Simulated scan of single mutants.
Amino acid sequence: MAAERENRERAATGVTAAPRRRGRLDQPMPPRRRFLPEWDPEAFGRLSERIARFLGTGRFIVWMTIIIILWVVWNVSAPRDLRFDNYPFIFLTLMLSLQASYAAPLILLAQNRQDDRDRVNLEQDRKQNERSIADTEYLTREIAALRMGLGEVATRDWIRSELQDLVKELEERYAEGSGDGRVVFPAERSRARDVDDR
Rank of each mutant, 00 (worst) to 15 (best):
A175G: 07
G151K: 09
R131G: 01
L166I: 09
G151A: 15
A110C: 03
K168R: 15
I133R: 13
N112D: 08
I133F: 01
V153R: 14
L122Q: 15
D115E: 13
A145K: 13
A134E: 12
Q128S: 11
R117C: 02
W158F: 14
R119V: 01
R117W: 07
E162Y: 04
D115P: 02
Y138A: 10
R131E: 12
L163W: 03
D165I: 00
Q124C: 05
Q128P: 02
Y174S: 08
D115T: 09
D125M: 14
V153M: 12
S132A: 14
L163R: 11
N121R: 15
W158P: 00
E142N: 04
R113N: 12
R117T: 11
K127M: 12
N129V: 01
E171F: 03
E172Q: 10
I159H: 07
L139C: 00
A144G: 05
R160L: 11
L139F: 07
E176W: 04
A145V: 05
T140W: 01
E137P: 00
Q164D: 15
A175Y: 05
R160P: 00
G151L: 09
R131T: 01
E123D: 09
Y138N: 07
L139K: 11
Y174Q: 05
E162G: 11
G149A: 15
Q114Y: 10
W158R: 14
V120S: 05
Q111A: 14
V167D: 04
D116F: 05
R173I: 06
A144M: 09
R141N: 06
E171P: 01
Q114E: 15
T136A: 12
K127G: 01
D125I: 04
T136N: 05
L150Y: 10
A134W: 00
R173T: 04
Q128L: 12
D165L: 06
Q111R: 13
E152N: 04
A110Q: 01
L150T: 02
E169G: 03
R113I: 03
V153P: 00
E130T: 02
D165P: 00
D165Y: 05
N112L: 11
E130G: 03
R113F: 03
L122S: 08
T136R: 09
Y174H: 13
L146N: 04
N112M: 09
A144R: 13
Q111T: 08
L139Y: 09
R119S: 12
L146E: 09
G151E: 13
E176Q: 06
R126F: 06
L146Q: 12
E123Y: 02
L170V: 10
I133V: 11
V120A: 13
L163N: 03
R141V: 04
D157G: 08
R156I: 12
R131V: 00
Q164A: 14
R126A: 12
E123M: 08
E171Q: 13
I143H: 02
D157T: 10
R126Y: 07
R141F: 02
G149M: 10
R147E: 15
G149N: 15
